[in-house]
Design a protein around this nucleic acid. Structure first.
Lengths: 106, 106
DNA sequence: ACTACATATCGTAATATTGCAATATAAAAA
DNA sequence: TTTTTATATTGCAATATTACGATATGTAGT
């Protein structure tokens, strides 16, 4: 199939999965790390920074933007990308409410 | 292609992506939530809890186990699954070291 | 030994993801 | 206006994921 049955799960479960999926690729992790490092929002710099072709980077940026993790602003003929704080904070606290209890078996 | 070029990224980036990928499905999020709720480690219960067929659940459990997020112990004729604390804690702190700075542009 | 129960594996179909060359778009610079 | 620069989109091939029926494996109880 390859088709996730999202209608069978809660809205929260789907959201957690969606955000996790956006981070589930090393290139996208690298993009996030880079954006956090340089803070100011560059874009072609990301293409120069990562060992992937420009269309591939563009595609990853699109997925991160769709997930709401990054934002993009037009700046002249370039586009300035940066972390979208509220969503990024949500990711950091993804499993915050899930308190791990002491296991009694394993 | 469909093949991630893991050799182009750092070990840490690949690990973050790998852990995120394990969570990047609502069924697996549901399994983790359930295991955290019941603490004690059941397994057929998960099949009864989620609206997916037994082989599908088994497959998801396998992926969670491969990622190190859960553990499985044989207990009679059943298998007892539970959260693997150290790895789960790591997930909670995945983006901890990444400090979001104030954006100056977007 | 036979049966019931619990879980894993195999095989397969449908769909999704990854990566890039080629090309399109769009704004700045010459 | 032409050229350069920056980014997005399209199309496609290779591979991965998801889901499940059928079946295998393994243990407990009878």
């Amino acid at each position: 199939m390859g088709l996730t049955k999202t209608d069978l799960f809660t809205e929260n479960q789907n959201e957690v999965a969606m955000l996790a999926k956006a981070i589930a690729h090393p290139a996208r992790v690298a993009i996030i790390e880079y954006l956090l490092k340089v803070n100011a929002c560059i874009c072609n710099d990301i293409v120069n920074e990562l060992p992937l072709a420009q269309p591939t980077i563009s595609q990853h940026l699109k997925e991160l933007k769709n997930a709401g993790i990054i934002k993009g602003n037009i700046e002249g003929n370039a586009i300035c990308y940066c972390i979208n704080e509220p969503v990024f904070s949500k990711i950091k606290g993804l499993f915050g409410p899930m308190q791990p209890i002491q296991n009694t078996c394993c």
